[in-house]
Nucleic acid binder design. Structure first.
Lengths: 202, 202
DNA sequence: TCCCGGGCCTGACATTTGTCATGCCCGGGA
DNA sequence: TCCCGGGCATGACAAATGTCAGGCCCGGGA
């Protein structure tokens, strides 16, 4: 009785390599591979895998949003998030979206197959170190609007540009940014962006 | 006659997966794996692989610097850079450091083994699209000092902080930043950092 | 030899950014 | 019902940022 898998990662080489790695296990079988978040659900519906391994950073739709889709439309398929960045907010959002497991890409290769088996068996798989980080970091302190503004300012856009893009007054934008800077403990906009990103709040 | 390989990538899972992928080929054999740039040279000297696959983003020493070390101390080992980011400056610097090939992580998995064989056969392997990008983007227009200052300002540090770290006057720092902003066609510091990073100039 | 250009540095000046106090509107508890 | 917190806005002030003109040093032609 083999476990049927779907792989989603935007880097073809990594996708293929993971496929090779998991294919070495006799009880695992990769039945589908996709390279973008919005292709996950169609592939799941077509192939009905037991477990879907999703990267977070993907074009189209991020892995967490894709996990939520899968959870809704194909609840029998369990989701294991496999990501580069162990950001506390990612873990929180992933679990909230119904993911059954969360693994960082610098865990030893030997553990991946085990994680897949555990998830398939109905267990939850979470990196313990990351779980405590997530508790310490807590939920995002930013209000939705502050998050929007900070996200819009991520690429170095000026206050005026952000204001125009979000149809806000410049003063309001400055206010939201100021609040975000305060809440993140940063000294300026750039630092605020960095810590917010690092915590997975954007 | 098998080709002996060394793998260097900071993400253990990717390293293991690549190892599995390449291990499927009967003429390839992975003889060493390391997870940091400064471990590359010792491992090369110990195992004398035919080809070293190096990631660019690694702790300790970046893959390009490691390539230069290998080139100097073990010229028989050919270097193939395998990286996430196809930044023009990376390619240029990699070739300059004596790398024999440059592959981006979103090339199809099937092509990797071929790239390894070609490099081993003494050929140069370069993604053609990337090569033209590299030509278009040209060399970094930033002077060494401008590069230093921009790099120091990358994390959102203030002018005062950068000045102190680099033992410069604040005015000088502002000036270098202004020059970098002008040369990159950016509107401010943050944008300058983004385009410079995107081109591999930092 | 003199001149020129580039890299590096500096201080003055205008603009942008961040902070603060304040006010208005709205929806959801107590 | 009242109150509170979030979103939105304004205006004023201080601090940081970006621009500019200019000076110093060095190496490479004319």
């Amino acid at each position: 009785m083999t476990i049927r898998l779907l792989l989603a990662d935007d880097q073809a080489l990594v996708r293929g390599a993971l496929s090779a790695l998991l294919g070495l296990e006799s009880d695992l079988e990769v039945v589908a591979e996709v390279g973008a978040g919005d292709l996950v659900l169609p592939a799941v519906l077509e192939h009905r895998p037991d477990v879907a391994l999703l990267d977070v950073e993907m074009p189209g739709l991020d892995g967490i949003a894709a996990a939520a889709e899968v959870r809704r439309a194909a609840p029998d398929t369990r989701v294991l998030i496999v990501t580069t960045f162990g950001r506390p907010g990612y873990l929180r959002r992933a679990l909230h979206a119904g993911a059954a497991g969360f693994v960082v890409k610098d865990t030893p290769a030997a553990q991946l197959a085990d994680a897949v088996r555990r998830v398939h068996a109905g267990l939850r798989v979470v990196d313990p170190a990351l779980a405590t980080d997530s508790l310490v970091a807590g939920e995002s302190p930013l209000t939705p609007r502050e998050t929007d503004v900070l996200r819009a300012a991520r690429d170095g856009a000026s206050v005026a540009a952000v204001a125009k893009r979000l149809f806000l007054s410049e003063g309001t934008v400055r206010n939201h940014l100021s609040a975000a800077i305060g809440k993140t403990g940063a000294a300026n906009r750039a630092e605020a962006v960095i810590t917010a990103e690092g915590n997975g709040w954007l």
